[in-house]
Amino acid sequence: MQGITFDIAHMLAGSLVLVSFIQLYQQRLSALLNIFALHAFVLALSVAWQAYVQDAPHLYITAIIALVFKAIVIPVALRRIVIRLGIHREIENVFGVGLAMLLGICLVALSMVVMLRVTSGADPLAREDLAFALSVVLLGMLMMVTRRNAVSQVVGFMSLENGLVLAATGAKGMPLVVEISIAFSVLIAFIVIGIFLFRIRERFDTVDMQAMDRFRGEQR
């Protein structure tokens, strides 16, 4: 029984990393948003499984939040914004997808080395989870760094947060306050980003950050 629960948790967490890789691979905004929905969905599954395994019903709430907000509401909202603002569908990458994937693999390897090395005393479930969570976090950051487009950066940020949720749920017995705070932070993040996107729409003609960088405050 222990083996199967562990395997399933492992599989779900691993697929989250895989979905992160797929995100990295995406070239088009709409596809990226779809994949992000998938990402959130896998997260929800994983959290639900943890809730089941740890016998911690409050984690179901987190799973539901992840499912409803991240997998459905946000992708829909972002798609609307994309359509309404008429943002270029193509995503500009800083460097090629191949290199990004390669870097991603390196990051995953790094997080494995770091995590597997350090938590030798902890129970394996949490340890695997943490390693995957760190991978997801790092991949999310990589996406933010390699994409030039604001919407895809927001997506990168949110997949980073997914990694955090994964880590938090993996930490057995972590108080509820954390999950709620994550949910809150994502919510606030989204709201504020939304406000900003609106403002930016008012003031700037594009959400591409390069254009915004013209207003650097201090002229060279």
Partner: peptide, 8 residues
């Protein structure tokens, strides 16, 4: 995000 991860 990073601080939260550290806290966890």
């Amino acid at each position: 995000a990073l601080a939260l991860f550290g806290t966890i």
